[in-house]
Amino acid sequence: MSAPMLELRNVVVDFDGFKAINDLSLTIESGSMTVVIGPNGAGKSTMCDSIIGRVRPTTGTVLFRGQEIQAKPEHDIVGLGICRKFQTPGVLVALSVIDNLTIAATKDRRWWTKFGRKGEAAARERAEDILEMVGLGPRRDELAGNLSHGEKQWLEIGMVVATDAELLLLDEPTAGMGAAESTQTAEIVKALVGKHAVLVIDHDIDFVAQLGGHVVVLHQGQLLREGTLAEIRADEEVAAIYLGRA
């Protein structure tokens, strides 16, 4: 069997003595769907941060396609094919929706190519497709800053997809969404599996059920359980930490 696409090996993230991630090992296969759940402070977002290079592991290695990436600059990690959506929507507010997506879809991200138009048409074409995919067609030329919270979430999901990264990290894609919006988000995310490996962090158990992926439970920076949602639901220890019984 070939090596997994992403592998975390004994990763520790130590914030001045507090181990947000404590000896975590995890693998993600290409084209898979992994849902990470866990109580507040379990280290879910920090795990994403350590993959994408926003925080550096104190010890341990992060391997992407067999290559160590834990010391690379963020934009180089992204260049290898990992892209992340943040918990609070991080769209480019001064640009239109279509420009946001086009910038994300542009393959050549070197600055000196930005004075010409080379590659712009291809990126624009991909951006138009993704615009429809995330249901923002009617908002095409609106400034991203004028979108509602839910629309910003979809736009950012769209941007992450537009990069065509092999691994997409979606940190709470339904934060601040109602049930109907969550369902739409689940449809979008499910359509991505296969073409991309998707790692979703979420609290909302209904949303997790809709996604129906492999579930990983983090607790105090460590991997507590993994399995299908049914297995996790039946697990007494998981129930205990969620209900606060230790």
């Binding site: 600059p73 992204v78 260049g79 991200r109 990069t163």
Partner: peptide, 8 residues
């Protein structure tokens, strides 16, 4: 956001 889209 720009950095995490792969731009410096």
């Amino acid at each position: 956001r720009m950095r995490f889209l792969g731009y410096d």
